[in-house]
């Protein structure tokens, strides 16, 4: 075991994993985090805490992780390269590990022009591949990127994200291959709406044997409304939402119910795709729905963590 996290145990024992996402609040109030942790406890194996996603200032992911750990819920902290250089990234990794965080998702990060601090200076000292490579060397050998070898290295299970739906498509499997070579243990994908395209990507992933080297968790987003579907189709960079899905949401009598139904169908479909070792449920601003989705998709009960 690299970190001994619950997520690592589930994945390494060959079980189908479930992760979900908790968006930290735009405030200093820990209550929404406590609320979501209590509500979703036992419905997924670990919970991603986003790191100022879409470059909007929020309660920090590491602090959020500590808050949900107080509720005995396991975090996956997201760490982007947008706001921290190598000194801060390595320092925060040591700090997070010391606080008991065991899962880390390495991301390059959304550009600051999407957020609420458009005048910010970005960092991007690393990209996500370099971040993985540096964190991997740090956990395995205690070697910092600058060469110094430290005692008591962090014990972390490392993840990456990949988006099969962003251009240039020809690069997408190579990009995963690089992340695997750099040290990724698991990979959470962008939300999948175009199953054919995802399966084509997975064919290539399997052909390269990458599914044996990294645990792929297929991303899904339960949608509340037709507006959400349209928004993702038209406004979210690098996302593909087929027209059938937008229409299905538009024509539904009860959009919320349809959104859940659709998500459950997608999970059922993804469970059957060879090489997919879990799902990642991103119920953006709709965390309340995760227990229902998990239940209807037959993902319960989750394996007991010791």
């Amino acid at each position: 075991m690299k970190a001994g996290s619950n997520l690592e145990k589930v994945l390494e024992s060959g079980k189908f994993a479930v992760t979900a996402e908790i968006g930290p609040p735009q405030s200093a109030n820990p209550e929404p985090l406590e609320h979501h942790a209590k509500m979703m406890k036992g419905f997924a194996d670990a919970f991603n805490l986003t790191d100022n996603q879409t470059a909007v200032v929020r309660l920090s992911s590491i602090a959020s992780a500590v808050i949900i750990m107080r509720e005995s819920v396991e975090p996956v902290i997201q760490m982007t390269c947008r706001d921290r250089n190598r000194i801060a990234l390595q320092s925060d990794l040591l700090g997070a590990s010391a606080l008991g965080v065991k899962n880390v998702l390495c991301l390059t990060g959304d550009h600051q022009t999407f957020g609420n601090e458009k005048g910010a200076k970005n960092v991007f000292d690393f990209d996500s591949v370099v971040e993985l490579q540096v964190f991997d060397a740090l956990r395995r050998e205690g070697r910092q990127v600058g060469g110094e070898v430290i005692k008591d290295p962090p014990k972390v299970y490392l993840g990456c994200a990949e988006n099969p739906f962003a251009t240039p498509y020809e690069f997408r499997v190579s990009r995963l291959a690089k992340k695997v070579a750099a040290g990724a243990d698991f990979c959470q994908t962008q939300a999948i709406f175009d199953m054919n395209m995802f399966e084509k990507w997975m064919d290539e992933v399997r052909a390269r044997g990458l599914d044996k080297k990294v645990h792929i968790l297929a991303g899904v987003i339960p949608m509340k409304s037709a507006g959400a579907a349209r928004y993702m189709k038209n406004k979210v960079p690098g996302m593909i939402v087929p027209n059938e899905i937008v229409d299905r949401m538009k024509n539904a009598k009860d959009a919320k119910e349809e959104g859940v139904k659709l998500c459950v169908e997608q999970i059922e479909h993804l469970k059957a795709v060879k090489g997919v070792h879990g799902v990642h449920i991103m119920a953006v601003a709709w965390e309340e729905i995760v227990p229902k989705v998990a239940e209807l998709a037959g993902l319960l009960p989750r394996p007991k963590s010791e």
Binding site: D127, E162, P168, F171, K178
Partner: peptide, 11 residues
């Protein structure tokens, strides 16, 4: 994002 190892997921 001055990426050195390939495209980000937003393109």
């Amino acid at each position: 994002k001055s990426m050195l190892n390939g495209p980000c997921g937003g393109s």
